[in-house]
Design a protein around this nucleic acid. Structure first.
Lengths: 247, 247
DNA sequence: TAGTGGTCTAGACCACTCC
DNA sequence: GAGTGGTCTAGACCACTAA
């Protein structure tokens, strides 16, 4: 294995396993290994960093705990692609869950270049009035509206999306962010609430005005925890379950 | 240190650190050490279980990760008391959050001895029709109804609660469980949904029938993950926020 | 100073995967 | 059979806490 670039100045006061962890995550962020690709074996990493295998294991342990890597006995350790598709189905439960798991069909209702409102700018840690890309999107299963989304992105980082016809966006946005904007969503913070649906949203969701809808506000973050996207989703409460463990 | 009781039949096929973990969490659940109390040192535990210190560390690591124990360098390892009061305020947000944090006042509306319904029995891993203790409780802030709760407990473990006048219950139940039933809630699983409020619940919550309410189903667990309590809470959606991090 | 957890080593053997 | 991660050992030294 070639010598590992210690890209950032590594503080010698930090524990070794911590320095190994930083070195590995820096290399992952720099795409030395693509998602789904195996990183070198624990023995190789230990030799490269001149530490014992136990120290490497501790570094990898913490990256696995943070969902950055995945281990498979006998196969290797792999860069994990955060699977928001499956998380979608972890959080949403539908009346007819017997059949195969399906991604809802997405329909972009609107795409515009605008400026950040105060609330969105705060969530994305940008200036109020900064240039923004905004999407309105409807997600359906069996032609039945399921989720209505209002999505805000910083213009500079995502302007490449303007070049694509919205009818060719496909059903998932995060793969597009990766492909066209070189940006990978690594985690997200969500805030749930509920409200009586407005007349306008009721029309789009095929509900009666006043029926309860769940509202989810999501800030999507990169691996180094920079906010990338703000999104607000609304769906009929009757179709919705959300599970959490408190400790 | 006295020999540790290996209370449950421990499967010798399991990894040793796993067996040590099970033994420790069983003892915590059995109140061998009270919350905020130090457990024996890693060296002592290693000797008692005849494993190396590294194996003990791995067992304790996982209990710390699960929020059951807390470590302090130079001081020891302590049984953690989950702070459900503060978690209540992490999850709920009220219109007037400027003032000091307050626990809602609790009013027990009803206490009865009954039998487990199918759904509750399944959640608590008991037989349908097993004896149950059931409470209906309303929680208020400034005389304003905030949460309506339906609480189910296994009769045997909690029958001591029948001896206390419900007007003397106080505003939090988990301290009562600890004091009178020798049971500590260590974690909980919650499922969120929303619905249009029924006429009956609307009356109790001072809402108009049909307004959206959040529904939280909670199963409270002991340190060794035995289900202790099932509870369903309903509150006006307008008063409610819930925050989660996805990875 | 004695005792605690925090870090680290340099091996060992096992279970699993793939060829 | 070769290579991987999973478990485990029996120590070591360090940093921190409390008496």
């Amino acid at each position: 294995m070639s010598p590992l670039p210690t890209s950032t100045k590594l503080d010698h006061r930090l524990p070794r396993y911590h320095r190994v962890r930083e070195a590995l995550s820096a290399e992952i962020a720099a795409w030395r290994w693509k998602p789904e690709e195996a990183i070198p074996s624990e023995t190789e990493i230990a030799e490269a960093h001149r530490v014992s295998i136990g120290t490497v294991r501790k570094a990898i342990d913490s990256l696995v705990a943070d969902g950055v890597l995945e281990r498979f006995q006998g196969k290797g350790t792999f860069v994990r692609r955060p699977d928001f598709q499956s998380s979608f189905f972890r959080f949403f439960r539908f009346a007819n869950v017997d059949g195969p798991v399906r991604v809802p069909v997405s329909r972009i209702l609107k795409r515009e270049v605008t400026t950040m409102s105060a609330a969105v700018a705060a969530a994305l840690k940008l200036e109020v009035g900064a240039a923004a890309l905004r999407f309105s999107r409807l997600r359906l299963i069996d032609e039945r509206p399921l989720v209505l989304e209002d999505i805000w992105l910083p213009y500079e980082r995502f302007k490449a999306l303007l070049a694509i016809d919205t009818r060719e966006f496909g059903d998932l946005l995060y793969p597009l962010y990766e492909q066209y904007c070189g940006v990978m969503v690594a985690s997200a913070q969500e805030t749930l609430s509920a409200e009586a649906v407005s007349a306008k949203n009721a029309r789009l969701l095929a509900l009666v005005a006043g029926e309860p809808v769940i509202v989810i506000e999501r800030v999507a973050l990169s691996a180094d925890r920079q906010p990338l996207e703000w999104r607000q989703s609304r769906g009929p409460a009757s179709e919705f379950r959300y599970q959490v463990e408190i400790r």
